[in-house]
Nucleic acid binder design. Structure first.
Lengths: 252, 252
DNA sequence: TAGTGGTCTAGACCACTCC
DNA sequence: GAGTGGTCTAGACCACTAA
């Protein structure tokens, strides 16, 4: 450095702030290329690592995204709207539509990385489902890809004894999805609880959702309850936070 | 680099992975100090910037937290549970309790940085409240601090004409909060919509919530509707994602 | 005061993208 | 092939924390 002024805000922060201001004023719009490391070195008279650090600020704040060999670009935000309550009404899953398609009409949805199997229940799952630890659960793990962009990872767990032999243990569960099948088995879900939190992704989540740096994930854990109050399914979802707005409507 | 093996994963990623593995195996627990830059340089034979980069990975993933002059420490996760639906039943706000206290019983809650005033409505607020752009709104901006830790920023906007002269325009709104006051004014909220998303914090949010690096924020935007379907309040909240789990309960 | 992380420099080689 | 970001080195001074 070393230099400088009075109490001196770090150079890289000043550069980052200047870039943010330029974006805010519309000088750079969504998708535009920002000044690169060489530009910033020349413009501000700093070393490469310092220019890098400035660009790193914007990336870690989710404002910009680096593409190897190409440049650093302003990011966009075009979220899906996911209605947490209306999507789970009986009409939605009783009428041959999958739950997913309720909020993604007319989009190119692909479900891949499907894995269906039986495993010993993790401790926190077993507790919610009222099972003994290590008791077997049917696990359905899937990835949802919308218009070529992976947006959601879903891991659904059900007591293995409850669903043995049903379509739930197969990749394709048929019209109406697993809730319709559960109803046919006499375990119709009538109540749901969704718990929502957010954190930075693990490296596995970063890879499976193809997340650029500075993108958090939303975690939605949904528990389905039958009329007698017992939990029959726990669905742990990982959502690209840049692709989703969750909506919950309810009366006072 | 230099060097290495076959397709060579970057050194800093290997070091970061080793640290994560050590944490996962319980070698370092919540609050423990991790090996510092000097330790990593010696242990792995790398330069300072490389060791820094490895520690930076853990920080940007929210796993660790650096304290100047002290070291890098494993972070903890002790969230509050915020019930989005039960907390807004009439019993909750009709009985002299503030909405906030419903989910933070027996905790040391302080509300500070209170700012109440009248402003021209932002475009997105005006649209929801059914106002003309720049029409005045009453804005209530507050920060909630729990046990000394700031956890939530709240900005509530109401049509200025609707609430003029009422306690809503003053810092202390009285028992039951603004929903009880709105009811007294003949604008009782009967329906709510909460929209939830997540992103990395702005620098202002980082400062006001005292967020360590690698912590996203949850954005909850709640709109309150009266019986005739008109929106009477928009409350934009910014939550420390490391301090909250949102819970929504509903029937099929 | 010794050690820590925060900032910064001035070089270097690499893989990748775009022309 | 020129330019980009990704990784890495080997030094440096600083402010801060803790003993």
């Amino acid at each position: 450095m070393t230099g400088g002024g009075v109490v001196t805000e770090p150079k890289y922060q000043r550069i980052a702030a200047a870039l943010k201001a330029a974006i805010a004023e519309g000088e750079y719009g969504p998708g535009d290329r920002l000044p690169g490391e060489n530009d910033l070195m020349a413009a501000h008279g700093v070393a490469r690592m310092t220019a890098r650090q400035a660009l790193g600020v914007l990336q870690s704040e989710g404002i910009a995204e680096a593409r190897k060999g190409a440049g650093v670009f302003v990011r966009t935000f075009h979220p899906l709207r996911r209605r947490g309550i209306q999507r789970l009404t009986r009409e939605a899953w009783g009428s041959g539509r999958s739950v997913w398609s309720v909020d993604a009409t007319d989009r190119d949805v692909v479900v891949d990385q499907i894995r269906v199997g039986e495993e010993p229940a993790a401790e926190h799952i077993a507790r919610v489902l009222g099972l003994v630890a290590d008791e077997p659960v049917c696990v359905r793990d899937r990835r949802f890809v919308l218009d070529g962009k992976p947006v959601l990872l879903s891991t659904s767990s059900l007591p293995a004894g409850l669903v043995a032999g049903s379509p739930i243990t197969r990749p394709d569960t048929g019209p109406g999805g697993i809730y319709a099948r559960l109803a046919e088995l006499g375990h119709e879900p009538v109540h749901f609880r969704e718990e929502v939190r957010s954190r930075m992704p693990t490296s596995d989540e970063t890879a499976r959702l193809a997340l650029p740096g500075g993108t958090p994930v939303l975690l939605v854990c949904r528990t389905a309850f039958t009329q007698d109050g017992s939990a029959v399914e726990v669905n742990e979802m990982v959502l690209d936070a840049n692709s989703y707005i969750l909506e919950y409507d309810f009366d006072a």
